[in-house]
C-alpha cells in the first residue's frame, strides 16, 4: 500500500513538472491558458495528497478557475494572435536557463539534505485553537492568530480591483454575443444554487475546509456567468455602488479592528465572541472578494465603461 502511494506521488509530481514545462512551450496563447488551468487542477490534486484540502479547494477555484477565466477574458480582448511571436534570442535564453537550472539544483539538494528536521508551529496552533473561535486550524490562523496579514491581503485585493476598475479601456461595450437558451436556463437555475453553496462555504469554514476565499471565488464565478448572461445587470450599477461593494470587506475588517481596540489591542477578539466576529468579517470579505474578482474579470475582458469620469 505504501508502495502504491509512492508510485502515485512520483507519477503526479513528475507530471506536474512536465505539465508546467509544456504550458510554457505552447505555440498559441489559448493553448497555454488551457494547459495552465489543467496544471492548476493537478496542483490542487497534489495538495489533497499532502493533506491541504483547504488549499486544494482554493487553488482549484482561484488558482485554476479564476486565473484561467481572467486570462481567457484578456485573450479575447487582445485579439487572439494565432501564435506567440518568436522567442528571445538564444544569447538571452541560454544564460537565464542555466542560471535557473543551477538555482533549481541547489534548492533540490538542500531540501533533500535537510528534509528530516521539521520545524514549525503546528503544536502551538493546535494548542490555541480552543481560544480562537474556529475549529478549522487554517481559519484560526488567517482570521485570528495572523489576522493582520489577512486584513492587509484584503487590502491588496481592494487596491488591485480599484486599479482595474479605474483602468477602463476605450473598447468598452456589452459582453459578447447573446447567450443561448440553454445557458439562460442554466443561469436561472444555478444562481440560487451558487448563493447557497457560497453561504455554506462561509459557514463550514469555521469547522472544515472552506471559508471566505473559496466562497468569494465561487461568488465571482456567479458574477462572471451573470455578466455573460442575458441581463448583465452588474454592468449597469453606478460606480459608487460598486466602490462600496469593493470596499465592504476591507472596511468591515478595519472597523472591527478599530472597535476591538476597546479590549486593549489591535484585532484582539473578546474570547467568548471570537466566533461571531470571525463570521461577520468572513461574510463581508466573501462579498467583497466576489465583487472584486468579478470587477477584475470585466476589466480584463475590457467591458468596463470607457469613461472613468462617468457619473458616480
Amino acid at each position: 500500500m505504501l508502495y502504491a502511494d509512492f508510485i502515485f506521488d512520483l507519477i503526479l509530481s513528475i507530471a506536474l513538472v512536465v505539465l508546467g514545462m509544456i504550458t510554457l512551450q505552447q505555440k498559441t496563447p489559448r493553448e497555454a491558458v488551457v494547459q495552465l488551468m489543467i496544471f492548476g487542477l493537478l496542483v490542487a490534486l497534489s495538495w489533497i495528497r499532502i493533506d491541504a484540502p483547504d488549499l486544494a479547494l482554493t487553488e482549484a477555484a482561484i488558482g485554476s478557475g479564476v486565473t484561467g477565466a481572467l486570462l481567457l477574458a484578456a485573450l479575447r480582448r487582445l485579439g487572439l494572435q494565432q501564435t506567440f511571436p518568436p522567442p528571445a534570442p538564444a544569447a538571452i535564453r541560454l544564460p537565464v536557463t542555466l542560471g535557473c537550472a543551477a538555482l533549481g539544483l541547489l534548492l533540490s539538494l538542500i531540501l533533500i539534505q535537510s528534509w528530516d528536521e521539521p520545524a514549525g508551529l503546528t503544536d502551538i496552533v493546535y494548542a490555541h485553537i480552543p481560544q480562537s473561535g474556529s475549529a478549522n486550524p487554517v481559519t484560526a490562523v488567517i482570521l485570528n492568530f495572523r489576522s493582520f496579514d489577512t486584513l492587509l491581503e484584503i487590502g491588496v485585493l481592494l487596491v488591485a480591483a480599484l486599479s482595474v476598475y479605474t483602468l477602463s479601456g476605450p473598447a468598452a461595450g456589452t459582453p459578447v454575443r447573446p447567450p443561448g437558451p440553454i445557458f439562460i436556463l442554466y443561469l436561472r437555475w444555478m444562481t440560487p444554487i451558487f448563493w447557497l453553496v457560497t453561504l455554506y462555504m462561509v459557514w463550514i469554514g469555521g469547522r472544515a475546509p472552506g471559508g471566505a476565499f473559496q466562497a468569494g471565488a465561487l461568488l465571482s464565478g456567479l458574477g462572471a456567468l451573470t455578466l455573460l448572461g442575458p441581463s448583465p445587470w452588474p454592468m449597469r450599477l453606478r460606480r459608487r455602488v460598486v466602490r462600496w461593494g469593493l470596499t465592504l470587506g476591507f472596511g468591515m475588517f478595519l472597523l472591527a479592528a478599530a472597535w476591538l481596540w476597546r479590549y486593549g489591542n489591535l484585532l484582539t477578539y473578546p474570547q467568548d465572541h471570537a466566533k461571531t466576529w470571525i463570521l461577520i468579517i468572513e461574510v463581508a470579505c466573501t462579498l467583497s472578494i466576489g465583487i472584486s474578482l468579478t470587477v477584475m474579470f470585466a476589466g480584463c475582458a475590457g467591458w468596463l465603461h470607457e469613461d472613468p469620469e462617468a457619473v458616480t
Partner: peptide, 12 residues
C-alpha cells in the same frame, strides 16, 4: 496534522 501556518500563508 500538517502545519496550518504555511497553509494560511499560501491562501494569502
Amino acid at each position: 496534522p500538517p502545519d496550518p501556518v504555511p497553509h494560511g500563508m499560501i491562501l494569502t
